[in-house]
């Protein structure tokens, strides 16, 4: 079950778009927390129990790839799934991010049906694993 979702993007409007996608996908009772870059995200991850990270790639200060690496290197955080959302959508880049343990990579402009379906199916899978239903 995902209770707390962290959205990381330097663009406030992009964070709003992603929030809207979560609402449309039915995640109405989920607490959504926002960060504007990887550094802010790591601070939040230290203090809040986050169940899923949705991060942009191209950001100032600390980009999404560095955030992904740090999360996956940390024994305390590496269980948290990280989804990368990027406008740098070559297949080579996507494969690299998956090899760095991104749960998924979505390319902008986001396809609402595609990301919504993915989130719903993994939310159900996650709930089953957690509660053994």
């Amino acid at each position: 079950m995902w209770n707390n979702i962290l959205i990381v993007d330097d663009s406030a409007i992009a964070r709003s778009f992603i929030r809207r996608i979560l609402e449309i996908s039915g995640f109405l009772n989920v607490k959504v927390v926002e960060a504007a870059n990887g550094n802010q995200a790591l601070e939040i991850l230290k203090t809040l129990e986050i169940d899923l990270v949705l991060t942009d790639l191209n950001m100032p200060e600390m980009d999404g790839e560095e955030l992904l690496k740090r999360v996956k290197r940390s024994p305390k955080l590496n269980h948290i799934p990280v989804i990368v959302i990027t406008s740098l959508g070559s297949s080579a880049r996507q494969q690299k991010l998956v090899s760095e343990h991104a749960m998924a990579v979505f390319t902008k402009p986001l396809s609402l049906p595609e990301i919504s379906q993915f989130l719903k199916s993994h939310f159900d899978e996650n709930a089953e694993n957690k509660y053994g239903n």
């Binding site: 663009s11 409007i13 992009a14 778009f17 191209n58 990027t86 406008s87 740098l88 959508g89 070559s90 297949s91 080579a92 880049r93 390319t107 902008k108 402009p109």
Partner: peptide
């Protein structure tokens, strides 16, 4: 800014072969 980022990224993705990387 978000429109620029998304359109430029999508434009490069459409223009280049899929395995070719690009930077913005």
């Amino acid at each position: 800014s978000e429109y620029c980022n998304t359109i430029a990224g999508d434009f490069m993705k459409n223009l280049l072969p899929p395995d070719k990387d690009f930077d913005l």
